[in-house]
Amino acid sequence: MIHSMTAYARSDVKADWGSASWEIRSVNQRYLETYLRLPEQFRSLEPMLRDRLRKRLARGKVEVNLRFELTENAGDTLQMNEKLAAQLIEKAQHLHTMAGIGQLNLVELMRWPGVLEANEQDMDAIGKELLEKFDETVDHFLEARASEGQALEKMIVERLDGVTEQAAFVRGRMPQIMEWQRQKLNDRLAEVKEEMDPGRIEQEMILLAQKMDVAEEIDRLDTHVAETRKVLKKGGACGRRLDFMMQEFNRESNTLASKSISTDITAAAVELKVLIEQMREQIQNIE
Rank of each mutant, 00 (worst) to 15 (best):
I2G: 03
S4G: 01
T6K: 03
A7N: 03
D12V: 00
A15F: 00
S21L: 01
W22N: 03
E23R: 12
T34S: 11
L36Q: 01
L38I: 11
E46F: 00
D51N: 13
R52I: 11
R52M: 10
A58F: 02
R59Y: 02
V62T: 09
V64T: 12
V64M: 03
N65D: 10
L66E: 00
R67C: 07
F68K: 04
E69S: 11
T71D: 07
A74R: 11
A74I: 11
D76S: 14
D76E: 15
T77C: 09
Q79L: 15
M80I: 15
E82Q: 15
A86Y: 04
Q87W: 04
L88T: 13
K91A: 15
A92R: 13
H94A: 15
L95I: 15
T97D: 14
M98G: 05
G102D: 13
N105R: 14
L106D: 09
V107S: 15
V107G: 13
M110G: 12
P113H: 04
P113E: 06
V115L: 09
L116C: 12
E120S: 15
D124R: 14
L130E: 10
E136S: 10
L142I: 13
L142W: 03
E143A: 14
A146I: 06
Q150C: 00
M155Q: 03
E158Y: 00
G162S: 06
E165M: 10
R173K: 08
I177Q: 08
I177H: 07
M178I: 14
E179T: 14
W180M: 14
Q183I: 07
R188L: 07
A190H: 03
K193W: 01
K193H: 05
K193F: 02
K193S: 10
M196K: 13
G199C: 05
R200G: 02
I201W: 00
E202R: 10
E204V: 11
M205K: 07
I206H: 10
L208H: 01
L208P: 07
Q210S: 14
K211R: 13
K211P: 04
M212H: 04
E217G: 08
L221T: 01
H224L: 05
A226Y: 07
R229N: 11
K233F: 00
G239M: 05
Q247T: 11
E252I: 07
T255W: 02
S258V: 06
S258T: 10
S260E: 01
I261Q: 15
I261L: 14
I261N: 14
T263Q: 13
T263A: 15
A268T: 11
V274L: 04
V274T: 12
L275H: 06
E277F: 02
I286Y: 00
